[in-house]
Write a protein that binds this DNA or RNA. Structure first.
Length: 427
RNA sequence: GUGGGCGUAGCUCAAUGGUCAGAGUACUGGACUGUGGCUCCAGGUGUUGGGGGUUCGAGUCCCCUCGCCCACCCCA
């Protein structure tokens, strides 16, 4: 690379530049509107927390905590970590600020960067952005359904309707241990057939064997006990209730008993949205219920459910379906000579005072090159000020789309700019 | 952490081990002395990612290194 590129962004971290940034802003605006309709309010928490907050919530033996966190000591020797996900911080804040004293349920959303020290690949970054929600206080399946429905609305609001929703229930502290036993028993006498990774999973997190991609393991797990057949009565009725509500809303989804979550804190409902056109990292959004986490953080027994959307991944999907809308100036002012340049400078200010986007050409450059530049940046209209115009106190205008031209008084040019834009918007 | 692919102009890419590393595009100017797009003409740009080695000679072959990409793992 050239000599100027001595300083680079860190591995797995990217600049978001125009025109991409317009896509991001469009998504964020659409999302905020949907959040408003569902009564979710924004919450902003710090990007760093005490390390133990993440260890406690995500789970000591998860990959995230064991090897993917950006952990460091501050100058006082405290162990801090950059947040690898959003839920832990929001739960910490919920408890610390005693938000459980406010009317229940309390519903929050956040948008912001997360950090995981992983090997980057398509759709996976070390700093990545998540938009997530957390709804506290309701144990009812209605809240699960509401949150899932909102996720569908969010994705639909930006033109991504045709995605696959999968739901599952992974039970609770009453029924999951028993199921785990059955699973261990099932794979216990099939250990030789499992891949090396699954042999490890057998000891660390046997549920993970269920979504291994190795053909031999896929084969071998046929007939393995399904979590959905081993739920306790409460979990089963919750899960069935959720499905009835999703049906009521007309949402299409698939029950996938093999869908497992990577974080320890989930209970009962889990769900995931995937896309077929994203490569290996195909999860667009994922979430679930976590009824014990608030209690573990020292708050009162408070059921909760939430999800997070991977922003880079939906940006990628939107990229595939449509190009970004690049904003363009309303008026480009071309001028020739010193006095005309001065008038163009003043006129640009007057136009901007009216809320329009005005750009100026270089008065020392030829009109031709100024016109070319106006065309390149897709300006809708060009104002031309030269010697002739100054003498007669006028400004020529030209609409680039159809080459129509006219002239207006210099003193009225700023107001004319407003009218011209109105005309081109309505036509 | 493991495996594979790729690094040549701002961008997209050429160049059987052999002169001075090229083309398109973009940019600037001109043809059109004050009017964009289309066409034509002219102009500049490179530590061939970096370092070492083989060779009379390396963008090309070998080794090391850095970076990017993809996959595994894991996950949004």
């Amino acid at each position: 690379m050239s000599a100027e590129a001595r300083y680079r962004a860190l591995k797995g971290m990217k600049d978001v530049l125009p025109p991409d940034i317009h896509l991001w802003q469009k998504i964020e605006t659409a999302f905020r509107e949907v959040f408003g309709a569902y009564g979710f309010q924004e919450i902003r928490t710090p990007v760093a927390e005490s390390t133990d907050i993440f260890v406690r919530s995500i789970g000591e033996t998860t990959d995230i905590v064991e090897k993917e966190m950006y952990t460091f000591e501050d100058k006082a020797g405290r162990s801090l970590s950059l947040r690898p996900e959003g839920t832990a911080s929001v739960v910490r804040s919920f408890v610390e600020n005693r938000l459980f004293n406010l009317p229940s349920p309390q519903k929050f959303y956040y948008m912001g960067p997360m950090f995981r020290y992983e090997r980057p690949q398509s759709g996976r970054y070390r700093q990545f952005y998540q938009t997530g929600v957390e709804a506290f206080g309701s144990p009812q399946p209605e809240m699960d359904a509401e949150v899932i429905a909102m996720l569908g609305r969010l994705l639909g609001s930006i033109g991504l309707p045709e995605l696959v929703f999968q739901v599952n229930s992974i039970g609770c502290e009453n029924c999951r241990p028993g199921y785990k036993e059955k699973l261990l028993a099932f794979f216990g006498n099939r250990l030789e057939g499992l891949c090396a990774d699954c042999a490890r999973r057998y000891r660390q997190n046997p549920l993970r064997i269920l979504d291994c991609k190795v053909p031999g393991c896929v084969e071998l797990r046929q007939g393995a006990p399904k979590i959905t057949d081993h739920l306790c009565a409460d979990c089963r009725s919750h899960f069935e209730g959720l499905q009835r509500l999703l049906d009521l809303l007309g949402l299409s989804y698939a029950v996938n008993p093999d869908m497992v979550r990577g974080l320890d804190y989930y209970t009962r409902t889990t769900f995931e949205v995937t896309s077929g056109s994203l490569g290996a990292q195909n999860a667009v959004a994922a979430g679930g219920r976590y009824d014990r986490l608030v209690r573990e953080f020292g708050g009162p027994e408070t059921p909760a459910v939430g999800f997070a959307i991977g922003m880079e991944r939906i940006v990628e999907l939107l990229h595939q379906s449509a190009g970004a809308v690049v904003p363009a100036p309303d008026i480009f002012i071309a001028s020739m000579g010193g006095e005309a340049g001065k008038q163009s400078f003043l006129l640009a200010q007057q136009i901007r005072d009216r809320g329009l986007w005005a750009e100026r050409g270089d008065p020392a450059a030829s009109l031709k090159s100024q016109m070319r530049r106006a065309d390149r940046i897709a300006a809708r209209h060009v104002f031309i000020i030269g010697e002739e115009e100054l003498r007669s106190g006028i400004v020529r205008w030209k609409r680039l789309a159809d080459s129509s031209q006219g002239e207006v008084a210099l003193s009225d040019a700023a107001e004319s700019a407003v009218r011209l834009r109105g005309d081109s918007l309505s036509s």
